[in-house]
Design a protein around this nucleic acid. Structure first.
Lengths: 290, 290
DNA sequence: GTGAAATGTATTATAAGGTAGACAGGTATC
DNA sequence: GATACCTGTCTACCTTATAATACATTTCAC
């Protein structure tokens, strides 16, 4: 958020504290441990802690009150956009949020072994690789690297990609998208990604890798996506099913309709939700505004 | 992995490169860019890059061949344990993997506002907080902070918690677990978590927050889990459903049975899912051994 | 072979980050 | 009011990470 040049130890502490403030782990209004405590906790000197706090103060994330302590300023825990596990962005549009895309790179390349393997490409077969950044209301939140087999990639243009979702293009081209398999992990931002997403190098990222197949089992898309966790997260509802002794969670499959009730449950859980005879677990309707 | 004291810029580069090697972004056997290129990329001097590479070499992650280059050593991309979106650990047991638990903390506390809100506690109502670390084959992979309303927490003992999954305890106590809502994000490891999971401060972590309710809508458990992404990740299979124009992904709900085919899909996709005339997209079938 | 490019090694100098300690002034608690 | 604890500020010092540079050695491609 601020790119002031800064010592590195201090910056690390800054990043960690910032994390905890933004995701709500440090409650708004609460007091941080004293500078000396923090220094001890991280094994650094007070001066260093101080530098980290300085930056947080510049960011407006904390209030420092001499004699009293340092406090987390209210109203700063940004609620990330919440995506359903299926990770469809369409509801964002439905919510009136404006997403846009910046195409950073578009080329036909020899894919790496793992991509080629995942898509089931023949040795030597090329793939179209695109790198895109998606923004919501002007703020970048995801970095997408997609690989599509060359024969499929040629059915749309670079300009198409800059304006339409890839899956839409594929389906427009007559490709039948059937199944997908994805996994979610976490990584650190490297220089390029950090730059594209407006982050510091070393910031945490949500990572999603998805492979999409057509009904014949032919791979049609390999997606590697990196998300800013402060602006994007995955959400899912589960129900407990199965006989006693073999109980398990199953995802709740929602109707195909748009569901306007999008919000971060964390801060307000079903409190409102669970007011009673079990009305919805949807509370403040705090849509992901801003 | 190695706790050699090290310069900070160098360490940051070390961590980033290590990330990319472990998660397979840098393919095993492939050559890294030259030291000068890396230095340019990260905006540091060659000496610094060199230090990072030194540490990677000590870790055994790379092979340096004078005159030739630096190569990613084979067999090092550890495949994380793959958990289904429902995040059940039972299949790990079915696979013969041994998980164990270390109970780090067990106490009744005044929960933070966000936890209290999520569980729907009355103001002032206390909660049982436990912090556990879960290990697989002796290696820690998750850090779990759970909050349970006091009245429910008292139905089991500290020793119970150290030996049985919390959900099991709850259901044993007659609590009916009905629904849950969870979201997945990413964060950085702070000192305590880093220590418990055997990581460096500042390592990336998968974060999962889940709230579980009973049928009456009463919150029974609040879980905040942090996972080492190199040892644990989430996985899900999706099917494309819905009419043209309103297509979306739906999760594949698997049968209640154990599914032994656990592996990182990345290298081989839904093989079982789409068995067909499609030669393997499965390469090495490297299951999560090790 | 020749040359380009890579890693290995060493030296030096600079700059910066970090530590330690002391002290002033504010705030809250008892 | 006394005390304890907090932030604000400053000084001085020291460590060392980093940069810049030069040169040797190995490998590979042509």
């Amino acid at each position: 958020m601020v790119d002031a040049v800064e010592p590195l130890k201090a910056r690390r502490i800054y990043l960690l504290l910032r994390e905890r403030i933004l995701n709500g782990a440090l409650e708004p209004g609460s007091r941080l441990p004293g500078e000396l405590s923090i220094a001890a906790e991280y094994g650094v000197s007070r001066v260093t802690v101080r530098r980290a706090l300085d930056t947080l103060a510049i960011d407006g994330l904390i209030d420092r009150r001499p004699g009293s302590g340092t406090f987390v300023r209210e109203g700063n825990s940004v609620q990330p956009i919440v995506a359903d596990l299926s990770n469809v962005l369409s509801h964002l549009v439905e919510m009136g949020r404006r997403t846009s895309v910046r195409l950073l790179s578009f080329a036909y390349v020899n894919p790496s072994e793992s991509v080629a393997g995942a898509l089931g490409l023949e040795p030597g077969e090329r793939a179209q690789r695109s790198i895109r950044v998606r923004l919501i209301d002007g703020a970048p939140f995801s970095y997408l690297v997609t690989h599509v087999p060359e024969r499929i990639g040629v059915t749309y243009s670079e300009a198409d990609l800059a304006s339409m979702p890839l899956l839409g293009l594929l389906e427009r081209s007559g490709i039948v998208v059937d199944e997908a398999s994805q996994s979610i992990g976490a990584t650190l931002a490297g220089p390029d990604v950090a730059d594209a997403l407006g982050l510091e190098i070393g910031s945490p990222l949500l990572s999603l890798t998805r492979v999409v197949w057509d009904p014949s089992g032919q791979g049609v898309e390999h997606l590697h996506a990196l998300y800013r966790p402060d602006r994007y997260s995955f959400h899912m509802d589960l129900v407990r099913t199965g006989a006693v002794g073999a109980r398990r969670w199953n995802p709740v499959v929602k109707p195909t309709t748009a569901r306007p009730e999008l919000q971060k449950y964390k801060a307000k859980g079903p409190k409102s939700l669970k007011p009673k005879p079990r009305p919805v677990r949807v509370s403040t309707q705090r849509r992901t505004s801003t």
